[in-house]
Amino acid sequence: MSVPLPALCEGCRCTAARAPVETVPGNGPAAAILAHGQPGDPGALQPELEALAAQVQALLPGWRIHGATLACRRSLAALHGVGLVYPHFMADGWFVRSETPRRLALAGVEGVRLTAPLGLDPGLPALGAAVARETAAAAGIDPATATLVVVGHGSGKSRAPARAARAFAEALAPAAGFAAVTVGFIEEPPFLADVLPEGPAVCLPFFATGGEHVTADIPQGWRGQGPIAPPIGTTAGVAALIAATLRAAMAEEAPQD
């Protein structure tokens, strides 16, 4: 059955021209990587999600992987026919548990199963430690003499975002090799602007995409105290984590002899 996509929003930079999954030829599993996006600019992050989806699909021959955001109704409407949705979020909070199912239902996307989100992936701390060390090395900083500041979103309403960021920071600390590891937040204390490490420092954004918090709020709060690593959700290695999660989720659905 053909399901037409909504028209592009005026001025949209969306590059997601794919048809709904159920209209795409192929018998392999269909899945989607779903991020929050930017409500004020729905198409801004869609190219980033599409590129990530292509990387994951290259690791899963025979699969069909789509990228979508909650902010882009066109990308959501293209998910008809997916069986699995990977939440490209950093916490298992309200957006994953409540808002994602609601938005999918409004788009007419039903019968999907959500995996655990990126921020809870047990392989993410090791990846974060490597990214932090690489960022320090590129700036000529010895991690053994520096502070690593993990900056998360935080929230005034839910403990889930801060809890996930703190767990990530605690888990990566032994492998990262920094003299100290601490956390700061955008929307709750301790605010990033109030985190003032002594000596060399590196900032590691615990964010899934390169949205406005990463491009504007973090540089403003960090105030040039040291290099800022790319948001962990955009780094090399994330595609492999997502592919492994989707593969494992599909294996759970396979009939057992």
Rank of each mutant, 00 (worst) to 15 (best):
D142T: 09
A248Y: 00
G233D: 10
T147G: 07
A77W: 12
A164K: 11
G233A: 08
R159I: 06
V149M: 06
V21Y: 03
I141A: 05
R102G: 02
L59Y: 01
P87W: 08
P227M: 15
V109Q: 10
R97A: 09
E48Q: 15
T182R: 14
F95Y: 15
G211A: 10
A30K: 14
T145A: 14
P25H: 13
H153E: 05
P122W: 13
L5Y: 11
A175I: 02
V202D: 01
V112T: 14
A244D: 12
L70F: 07
L45D: 02
H213Q: 04
S75C: 06
A31R: 07
A254C: 00
F206A: 12
A179V: 06
T115L: 05
A208W: 01
T15W: 06
V85L: 08
F185G: 08
I242N: 13
W222L: 08
G26C: 07
N27V: 02
G226P: 00
E198H: 01
L114E: 03
P174E: 09
S75T: 12
L59K: 08
T100M: 13
T215H: 05
V112M: 06
G11M: 12
P4R: 01
V24A: 06
G26H: 11
L120D: 15
L241Q: 04
A169W: 04
G184N: 05
T23W: 00
P255I: 04
R166T: 11
V24Q: 12
A129D: 10
T215G: 02
V238W: 10
R223H: 11
E48T: 07
V82K: 01
E99M: 09
G237T: 05
D194I: 04
G40E: 12
F89G: 12
R113C: 03
P200L: 12
E99K: 12
A179M: 03
F191S: 04
A129Y: 02
G210E: 13
G111A: 06
P197K: 08
V131G: 05
P200E: 11
G123Q: 14
E252D: 13
A216E: 14
L204S: 14
D257Y: 09
P174Y: 14
A54H: 04
A244M: 08
V112N: 07
L114F: 06
L79T: 11
G81I: 13
H88Y: 04
A91T: 07
A129K: 10
H213K: 03
R247Y: 00
T215L: 10
L76P: 14
P143D: 03
A169L: 05
A240C: 11
E134M: 02
P122C: 00
G152A: 02
L114Y: 05
T235I: 08
G123A: 14
H153S: 08
R223K: 15
Q38Y: 02
T23I: 00
P4I: 06
M250L: 15
L192G: 04
G28N: 09
D142A: 14
L172T: 09
P117F: 00
P230H: 00
G43V: 10
L127Y: 11
G83F: 07
M1A: 15
G28P: 01
G221M: 05
D257N: 03
Q55S: 13
C14M: 07
F207S: 11
A162D: 06
A78C: 08
A180C: 03
S158N: 10
L241F: 07
